[in-house]
Design a protein around this nucleic acid. Sequence first.
DNA 1: TTTAATATATGACTGTTGGTCAAATTTTGG
DNA 2: CCAAAATTTGACCAACAGTCATATATTAAA
Lengths: 211, 211
Amino acid sequence: MGIIERKEREKEQRRNDILDAAEKVFFKVGFENATMDEVAEMAELSKGTLYLYFSSKEDLYYAISIRALQVLRQLFEKTVPAGAPVLDKIIAIGKAFVQFAREKSDYFKTLVYFSSLPDCHEAIDRYEKLCEEKADPMSFFIQVLQQGIDEGKLRSDIPALQLAHILWTQTTGILNLAATKNIHFDLKDCSEDDLINNHIEIIKNGILKKG
Amino acid sequence: MGIIERKEREKEQRRNDILDAAEKVFFKVGFENATMDEVAEMAELSKGTLYLYFSSKEDLYYAISIRALQVLRQLFEKTVPAGAPVLDKIIAIGKAFVQFAREKSDYFKTLVYFSSLPDCHEAIDRYEKLCEEKADPMSFFIQVLQQGIDEGKLRSDIPALQLAHILWTQTTGILNLAATKNIHFDLKDCSEDDLINNHIEIIKNGILKKG
DNA sequence: TTTAATATATGACTGTTGGTCAAATTTTGG
DNA sequence: CCAAAATTTGACCAACAGTCATATATTAAA
């Protein structure tokens, strides 16, 4: 009697198919310009079906944001060697974040927009679930920072949680700036790498243990 | 024959009236939920008239963003003493920014959202004009940083322009985080001030001249 | 003052699109 | 094979951004 389980799997599969289609459409024409009819056509389903799996267009967007978080987390897992010295780990996380912003720029932009939105985190069970299970990228980062503090490599007067959020938002801002620097015409002729390296240069001494 | 001038003034006045109305509506119910009919009603004009002054709903939003930039710039002018030591000036700018994010939170949010948007800066004559005239807050900041570099108070290996953008995005990110920290439930029990002060603590040594 | 020309304002109308739901189709269990 | 349950469909609706022919107000000339 594995029918219920199979149905469960099929439902999850459908959900993923819809998300695949939505990603294609959203990333191609942008969230605002995309229509639910287009997504339905791409998914080879009727529009009504979409609403059986997602309560709204926004809900679809949020679900893609969750995916983005999962992808980033996986990149961390893959890239950051578990046994390495903690400072190397931190560097690896930074590099992975840069790589994510470059190679998965659609996902990155999704996250930037996601976090600029007011009241979006709530109402997403899956996001809360992700956080509770510590399966989000931020939790990973916090753990490594805590390790750094415990080992006396990082300053200990700022709690890991706060440190993580501060560095995270700072870095997200810079990566977004680097990605959109062509908009700021006065920044056109400095490289992304310059921006990122200078950013690191500025905060580096701010987080290390003195002496 | 001051008729043309008067008409010019009246047009600008109308434009401002519409913006006032749009601000009220947008800030009250949010940009997405607001309708052009509501704005028209608030402005005591017909919807058609709005479109004589602004090409779209987005255009209205952008115009409000420009206002936000002007307000912030004026706050800088008012708050930052021209003759003060340059490091004091920088601190004053930081404080003014914090004040802006707190007391003019609607404008602040407008700017955050504005800069997270792809391709929005172009197509706005008034924004480019503001930048060209160095009447935007960023230009003000750059000038002060340049002064700091020239006087040997700040590190000189990072150009003022880049330094400004880096600090700007970092700080915007933190202020936004502080403003929305209630969303990140794990941050609920640390104060905004903590976040901001720790942020400053981290970058402080990174921008000062060594020694 | 009258009038023609120009500038400005109006609101009914349209096309698009997010979201709904009664009916149709498929699947399940007896 | 059939009825009950689950799933899918697409015609339909309401809301809303944006348009435009018409109306009103203003200006400059006669």
